[in-house]
């Protein structure tokens, strides 16, 4: 039990860490790219980004599986039932949870601050790192915590596209499911308690940093 628990924990942390890191970069770029677009176009893109909030994860997994097999036909790349495929799935699945806090934080930065920095001699690139990022810091922390926590709780998508390969795609939530299926309630109890405690600490940390739930509320208009 311990061996599979350790390997699953490692897979889970690796998956959540890698997805979160990629998501932070991706969402930051997307939020800045979407900002200047016409309102309607921006709203369409934001809707797509938010779909995973309401779509059953199994549906997302199902479509991903179709896309993976279609891609596999052409260049023989097999993303289904691989760790890389899981990372891709997690990115889509956790996208709104990372995107929203980042967008809120960037929107809340007053233009007067960046203009002030410009009059003090900072170029656009310089301003992003010396003004925008520091002022949006709490938003980025919330985004990272939410993205990480949400990826750890991923189940439907993993089951559809990752299967249950120990050391490769077997994450904690799938392991828990397996324990229950096998009737190993003792291990299931322990694992469930660990996951509960873990989720609690992560969210507590988020409240500690951002001080509010605004991070996941819809965009202010």
């Amino acid at each position: 039990m311990i061996a599979s628990l350790v390997s699953s924990t490692l897979v889970t942390l690796k998956l959540a860490g890698l997805s979160t890191l990629l998501l932070i970069f991706l969402c930051c770029i997307m939020a800045m790219a979407i900002k200047p677009l016409p309102k309607n176009l921006a709203n369409i893109i934001r809707t797509f980004i938010s779909i995973p909030l309401v779509l059953p994860p199994v549906v997302l997994g199902f479509y991903l599986l179709l896309v993976f097999s279609w891609v596999g036909q052409y260049d023989g790349l097999s993303l289904a039932f691989s760790f890389e495929g899981l990372v891709l799935g997690s990115i889509l699945y956790s996208l709104p949870f990372v995107y929203q806090p980042i967008q809120n934080a960037l929107d809340n930065i007053s233009r007067s601050h960046t203009e002030l920095a410009a009059t003090m001699g900072a170029s656009a690139f310089d301003r992003f790192f010396s003004v925008t990022l520091p002022l949006a810091k709490n938003g980025f922390i919330s985004a990272a915590i939410l993205g990480f926590a949400h990826t750890i709780g991923e189940f439907g998508v993993v089951l559809m596209i990752g299967g249950n390969i120990p050391g490769e795609t077997q994450v904690l939530s799938v392991l828990l499911y397996e324990y229950v299926e096998m009737g190993d309630y003792n291990s299931a109890h322990n694992l469930a308690a660990i996951l509960l405690l873990f989720s609690f600490s992560l969210l507590f940390a988020m409240y500690h940093f951002s001080g509010s739930v605004n991070a996941i509320s819809p965009v202010k208009r």
């Binding site: 410009a118 009059t119 003090m120 001699g121 900072a122």
Partner: peptide, 9 residues
């Protein structure tokens, strides 16, 4: 560009 103008605002 603004950041190259030697001014104080």
């Amino acid at each position: 560009p603004v950041h190259k103008r030697h001014l104080a605002f």
